[in-house]
Amino acid sequence: MTDRSSSLRLTATDLARIAVFAALIAALGLAGTLYPLGGQVPITAQTLGVMLAGAILGAYGGALSVITFTVLVAAGLPLLSGGRGGLHWVIAAPTSGYLIGWSFGAFVIGWLAWRFRPWRRSAAAGMALFLLINLIGGVGVVYAIGIPVHIWRVDSGTLAVIQAIGSFLPGDLLKAVVASVVAYQVHRAIPGLAGGSNE
């Protein structure tokens, strides 16, 4: 966020952005269900919020907003898509690894975005770079944590991969594309987001 090198001290602006993005992830789980493939598959936009938290707030702000969201879910608020909430979804479900992975995914997306600054490039190159970053953090990192937990809990690598591909992967790929376009456009529209030193 504003100054990441010196300390973890958050300014009021950081605090507000982290809180509001945690709320955005919750709101996207409540109201953000999309039916882009002709109404066949409902896709909740919750992981879109996770990717955008990293891409818009950076590594620390993004991760902290996802952690805040995760804590609220663990405390019992029904904020996961489908109105799910409670400690069991965060620590005991076979899919808990993916949820824990979100915070790390947001961190990696933010770190890579601030390292390579896709918003400084042309639209096509910038969005492609953002897509790569979102796939690494939002799919690669999340699945790297989620799938081993999933395999452990269902006691089968094949089954875990079938379930992950069947239920998460198509939506996550689509959301990575959407997040890339949106992150690029928002950074272009609001140049001060990346600490003012980006232009």
Binding site: A12, T13, L15, A16, R17, A19, V20, F21, L24, L34, P36, A45, L48, L52, I56, L174, K175, V178, A179, V181, V182, Q185, V186, A189, I190, L193
Partner: peptide
């Protein structure tokens, strides 16, 4: 259209964050 929904949502969310800040 997810992009047509997400961009204005993001801009207004950031504006809400600024107001809160």
């Amino acid at each position: 259209n997810p992009i047509a929904l997400a961009i204005p949502t993001m801009i207004r969310t950031l504006r809400a964050a600024d107001a809160l800040g």
